[in-house]
Amino acid sequence: MARRILPGLSLTLGITLMYVAIIVVLPLGALIFKAASLGPEDYWRIVSSERATASYRVTILCALAATLFNLVFGMALAWVIVRYRFPGRRFIDALVDLPFALPTAVAGIALTTLFASNGWFGAPLAAIGIKVAYTPLGIIIAMAFTSLPFIVRTVQPVLEELDPALEEAGQTLGASDLEIFLRVILPQLAPALLAGLSLSFARSLGEFGAIIFIAGNQPFDTEITALLAFIRLEEYDYPASAAIASVMLIAAFTMLAITNLLQARALRYTVKG
């Protein structure tokens, strides 16, 4: 009886449901409807075509490599920001979010220019025989750039709240720093780290803007799945575009479920008994 003394439920819930229905559910429903109307045979033919599977391979492998890079760099970045005090620390902390703030198209042309064979990084790399722009390496760099903040921002708060007593216990028991890191600190970071990894990987799977400039976009070689969906659209092959987009949607939902699971675990870890 006393539960609902506040006004505005019907108004705010009405607005919320209407917005979610029109903006989020309707288009995704339309996409699923379109893909489903293809029929299982046609659908399978499109999503398992050689060009499509090649694009999945490129996307997944590059996303894995980018996530691996971010695992190392993101961890190091979070560690340095949390554990050390040095001039410019706050500046670095703020800069971590730049990849999220910078529009993907802007990041795309900037990275391409840096890594082109006459660019600041591309020229010296070309001199030692490494080609980045228009190769899978370029895709990896674009993916790593756009998803960098995830791991830093998931690990950072956990690292801040680590109990020094546990490390001290390790020290008094005679463990080396490396042993303490691997067996005391890392297990505490693991849930947050896993959640950050899955966020980073999911973002890399769906990234488009930053990649298409640097990728070269050669079918079978440097063509990501998002681009293939876009190309089918430009060719007016709408069923194929719907089918490929639906595969990406399924992948996104799978990653969302995994992330939520990992995050629920991470949350359980953070709760102090």
Partner: peptide, 26 residues
């Protein structure tokens, strides 16, 4: 449901809108 757009690729979002308001859409 409110959080879903974070997980969906922008390209998928664009394609989805096409199937609502495009000529071949709902």
């Amino acid at each position: 449901v409110i959080e879903i757009p974070f997980s969906v690729s922008p390209i998928v979002a664009g394609v989805a809108y096409l199937f609502v308001y495009g000529l071949q859409g709902l």
